[in-house]
Nucleic acid binder design. Structure first.
Length: 175
DNA sequence: CCACGGTGGTAGA
DNA sequence: TCTACCACCGTGG
């Protein structure tokens, strides 16, 4: 039998909406895009351990900065223990993409030593539990195609544009 | 632009 | 197990 671990869900308020952030004992384990039906599953501030509050403060600053088109600065610890081995490899490769740069799904596959797994890399991107801070929006299809985005393509375009690393005319096939 | 075959990983039956 | 998905990619029409 598995003991359910305690988690805390806090809001990250921004000009673009409220991002729910979920923390485990070891760090941030989930960050979601703003939803239409904002759930009221947020903890009262008084119940939140001091360490989680510190992590959350880092999360809020990082998200604010990214949305403003700035490098995120210091991040909280990220708890990716829920992922499979393959997914953790892909997420690790994405974390290594610097602000303002992009890689293709294929390049990610190469960098983890699994060159034919480009399609599977797309699957792992879609399963990324911490978008923005694990920057899956910096992964494009070949030839500067946008590719997909589980949070909605609008977000991918917005984030890449604010980072200055993509414009529509870069996509040589779309016009 | 479209269709298709070749891919690896994952969830569900 | 087997099967049916996929945020892919190259080739060929």
């Amino acid at each position: 039998m598995k003991t359910p671990q305690t988690v805390f869900t806090l809001r990250v308020p921004t000009a673009d909406g409220v991002f729910p952030a979920v923390y485990s004992q070891t760090g941030l384990c989930e960050l979601s895009f703003p939803r239409r039906n904002a759930p009221r599953l947020f903890e009262p501030a008084s119940d939140v351990p001091k360490q989680v509050q510190q992590w959350h403060s880092l999360t809020c600053q990082a998200v604010e900065r990214l949305l403003a088109g700035l490098p995120p600065g210091r991040l909280p610890p990220l708890d990716i223990s829920a992922g499979t081995e393959f997914q953790r490899q892909v997420w690790g490769a994405m974390r290594a993409i610097p602000f303002g740069k992009t890689l293709s799904y294929q390049e990610i596959a190469l960098s983890i030593g699994n060159p034919k797994a480009c399609r599977a890399v797309g699957g792992a991107c879609g399963a990324n539990p911490i978008p923005l801070l694990i920057p899956c929006h910096r992964v494009l299809a070949a030839h500067h195609h946008l590719g997909g985005f589980s949070g909605g393509l609008d977000w991918k375009i917005k984030l890449l544009t604010r980072e200055g690393s993509w414009t529509p005319e870069l996509d040589i096939f779309s016009t």
